[in-house]
Amino acid sequence: MTDTAPADRGHDPTAQGHDSARIRDDRTLTVLSTSDVAGIDITPADVLATVENAYRTLAAGRSDNPRKLTVKPGDGHSVAYAMLGRDGSRDVVAVKTSYKHGLHSPRDEQRYYTTLTLYDDVTGLPLAMMDCGRIGALRTPAVSALLARECAPPAARAALVIGTGTQGRLALPFLLTALPGLERLMLHGTHPDGITAVRRQLRAYFPGRDVEIVTDLREAAGAADVVVATAGPHTPAAVEASWLRPGALAVLVGHGLAPSTLHQADRVVATSEAQMRVTGTDMADAAGELPAVDAEFPAVLAGEASGRTAPDQRIFAYNSGLVVTDIALGHRFAQLALTQGMGTRVPLWQ
């Protein structure tokens, strides 16, 4: 695939102006609320560049991305995660936390909080704490789009998105940014409000473009060069490997792909094999096993491994989040917010 990264792969152009995001006060913390973060304008291209450089820096051994810590009570009513990391191109250390409560309740009754706290590893001072919901909502479709750019068949023209939740709503703008040659855009979803939201997001970034709503999932999957499965855990959608055309790329974000798409794939790419083996157990075979990963995506972006090695390969790609991408994108948001005077200064250590 075409390499569109900056010529200097150790430099992140979105990290320019780093000094403007540094706070020279060790007694206060700038807090960016949900509304603050929502008010920051950022293009899909900016997000893609930021996330891509985070992967490249990790592949170069300049960043740290330890495994997440997880706690869950015996009855499973809640789950919490803590993720620590360091972005070596931005000189930023951060901690991300995620807490979901009411897992046995209907989705609209569940409570979910996720935060990101950034520290400047040059000055040793805090940068910001922010709601991380939008960061994750943008980071994940950006990764799917980068996977498509590197692993889709040559001259890919058709894409299918399964699901109309947060990830489904943002998938198409990012796919079109990474693969502008896509001509046919298909969506399989069952919620009218979600379908409307997908169309609204697409037109916001690509006026004049529309998506085709498909009900025959098998036929749509067979026509797609790229399938991105973002549906929730209760979806009845399950694309089988035999439905996919030669050369197709199937990207798993949430649900919507049957295990056969993984086990019968000609090649398997994962953002992290270790994470796939922890969070991808629903894709295991009858013996509870997952196949080996042929390439991890940071190495693909760095040119150390190949995403695709033959035009007709059916490729399965597993998209799981790495905290270094949250850190990079969170720092980018902090730059944009702090230079605009956004956020609330809290005298946390006074």
Rank of each mutant, 00 (worst) to 15 (best):
R9G: 00
G10S: 14
Q16V: 12
G17Q: 09
A21K: 03
R22C: 13
R24N: 11
A38R: 15
D41F: 05
T43E: 11
L48R: 09
E52G: 14
R56Q: 06
G61M: 13
R67D: 14
L69C: 01
L69A: 15
D75H: 12
G76T: 09
S78P: 03
A80Y: 11
A80H: 03
V92L: 06
A94M: 08
K96L: 04
K96F: 12
T97E: 01
L103A: 11
H104A: 15
R107M: 08
R111M: 10
T114Y: 04
T117C: 09
T117V: 14
D120S: 10
G124P: 11
L125C: 05
L127W: 03
G133T: 15
A137H: 07
A155I: 00
R157N: 08
I162E: 06
G165T: 09
M186A: 13
M186H: 07
T190Y: 01
H191F: 05
G194I: 10
T196V: 13
T196A: 15
Q201P: 01
F206E: 09
G208Q: 08
R209P: 04
E212H: 09
T215M: 04
D216A: 09
E219D: 15
A223N: 12
A224K: 07
V226H: 08
T230A: 15
A231K: 04
P233D: 10
P236L: 07
A237C: 13
A238L: 05
L244Y: 02
L244N: 08
P246F: 11
L252W: 00
V253E: 01
P259E: 07
V268I: 13
A287W: 01
A287H: 14
G288F: 06
G288C: 05
P291Q: 10
A292R: 15
D294A: 13
D294N: 14
P298K: 00
A302V: 01
A302S: 05
G307V: 03
Q313P: 00
A317S: 11
S320K: 06
G321P: 04
L329F: 11
F333V: 10
Q335V: 04
A337P: 02
A337E: 05
T339V: 14
T344L: 13
R345Q: 15
R345A: 15
V346E: 14
